[in-house]
Design a protein around this nucleic acid. Sequence first.
DNA 1: GACATATTTTCACAAACATGCAAATATCAG
DNA 2: CTGATATTTGCATGTTTGTGAAAATATGTC
Lengths: 102, 102
Amino acid sequence: MDSKHRQELADLLKALGEYNRLSLVYQLCQCERPQNAMCLCECCSVDASVVSRHLKVLAQEGVVQMKKKGRERIYSLNRAEIAHKLREFADEIEGGLEAKSA
Amino acid sequence: MDSKHRQELADLLKALGEYNRLSLVYQLCQCERPQNAMCLCECCSVDASVVSRHLKVLAQEGVVQMKKKGRERIYSLNRAEIAHKLREFADEIEGGLEAKSA
DNA sequence: GACATATTTTCACAAACATGCAAATATCAG
DNA sequence: CTGATATTTGCATGTTTGTGAAAATATGTC
């Protein structure tokens, strides 16, 4: 794994590794439908501007996806993509040396 | 998931979400045998004290395990445990609502 | 004991970060 | 156009964090 990929993975993990951001992810996780930012705001007791910034970070790392709808922004979780990256990382950790030869 | 578990997961992801710490994890990952801190020091170009602190963080989060051996500290990766936690998280993200009923 | 090696701790510091508030922007309803 | 709602941005602030250098600690060798 080259340093660029490693940096990307580190950035992803860092984005997920903050309590309020992780709470937003779980909130989106439990919602059947995409949610707007104000709705997401209720799960963590912080200012709307804070939620906005956290969602921006999550979007930059590809954790969530955003769609404009009128004056609202509708967010949804990139479930498959994130789950895949996490499992890939788990495989690397567990597999270790034999990962590629197997 | 209660807030305590969520905080623990956030702490784990944060520990992994720093470039040099992640590099240490990958370094340990590629080693068949446990390594001492000085050896690990070579993979990232930082001071030995920095490596020591990073390893401390990783140990606190249960990512690595430490064993004293003379004046050396031998570190090894908790492969199964970390991989399991990552997969659990991946399942939660991907499974979403249906995770418990399935 | 004296010295070398491995590691941790303390200190200082700059950069990054999370946060709240207020102002700005965007869009809808009337 | 006016006002309301949703969201972002700028600013200020306190906190955390990653870092290197030097001192301290621990343990091995002679």
